[in-house]
């Protein structure tokens, strides 16, 4: 089990009279090596949850277990150095954190800080570039002269240089154009599928993640109101609207089709390609 939350609550300014609960009794189980999507309206606690995954925020009460490290509310936290290395966090608009004058220096900053030699750091930088599908010739470029999509990928690569077992991203595709968005999601999917990393993505756009995510978590006002597979999510789609979540078109179409043609036991086909193949099968199989 990569991550387990047991009755986790978090309050901002916990000891003052202005304390504000951001998470209230969250339960969560995420296996290693999956790709999970986290959805929820603005203010539902997504960003708070995310910052608990590598101990930036510690639970006010309850137990957070990430890999083999346990954080208990009200107790002194263990040393978090290892956890920070093993869980990579990518915040919103990560390109705003770029600061060096070359891409390579920017990528080496993390590894060197964690005590690696310059050689090792450069090696890790190159590997991370490849993982994000970036050309190595960009290493000597100034990061601020790259396109928006490239900057975003470099920023994510800078987290990958630490070779984290768990990668958590807060709206990684925001403001990118649709083609760059799809490309980035595919790269992240590959990090999960080929390298066996656990990838957790917070998103406002469920549709782009639907064909790839094995697990979904839906937050509403600091509570996990849903955790499960896409199939389970589809069954409960009606509830999602009340949590301020827009039901993706692909789910609407699949639901309607499966009700009409009795496909509800099947694995959902949510990409246009998969869905049309299923429809073609329906229409053509009865040709004969």
């Amino acid at each position: 089990m990569a991550i387990t939350f047991n009755q986790v609550s978090y309050e901002y300014d916990a000891n003052s009279m202005w304390s504000q609960a951001a998470l209230q009794g969250v339960n969560l189980h995420l296996e290693s090596g999956i790709l999970a999507g986290v959805a929820g309206a603005t203010g539902s606690g997504k960003s708070t949850l995310l910052q608990m995954f590598n101990g930036i925020l510690k639970p006010t009460s309850g137990t957070v277990q990430v890999l083999d490290i346990t954080l208990k509310g009200g107790e002194k936290a263990p040393k978090l150095h290892q956890l920070r290395k093993r869980v990579g966090l990518v915040f919103q608009f990560p390109e705003q954190q770029l600061f060096e004058d070359t891409v390579e220096k920017d990528l080496c900053f993390g590894p060197i800080n964690f005590g690696y030699s310059l050689e090792e750091a450069k090696d890790r930088a190159r590997r991370a570039m490849e993982q994000m599908g970036l050309d190595l010739s960009l290493l000597s470029r100034n990061p601020f002269q790259l396109s928006g999509g490239q900057m975003r990928k470099v920023a994510i690569a800078s987290v990958l240089t630490m070779d984290p077992e768990i990668l958590v991203l807060d709206e990684p595709t925001a403001t990118l154009d649709p083609v760059s968005r799809a490309e980035l999601i595919q790269l992240l999917h590959r990090l999960c599928r080929e390298d066996g990393r656990t990838v957790i993505i917070v998103t406002h756009r469920m549709d782009e993640l639907l064909p790839f995510a094995n697990q979904w978590i839906v937050l509403h006002e600091g509570l996990t109101v849903f955790q499960g597979t896409v199939k389970a999510l589809i069954e409960q789609a009606d509830r999602m609207e009340s949590y301020g979540i827009t039901i993706p078109q692909s789910i609407r179409y699949w639901r309607s089709l499966s009700e009409k043609f009795g496909w509800s036991e099947e694995d959902p086909c949510l990409s246009a390609e998969a869905m049309s193949k299923r429809i073609a099968h329906l229409v053509n199989s009865e040709d004969v």
Binding site: D177, V179, Q249, S250, A272, A280, V283, N284
Partner: peptide, 23 residues
Amino acid sequence: LEMSHLIAPFAFQLTTALHRYGV
């Protein structure tokens, strides 16, 4: 769409794919 880096709404994507399958 490809030249302008756009992705069509789902209903359009689905219809285009269905045409490819002869539906």
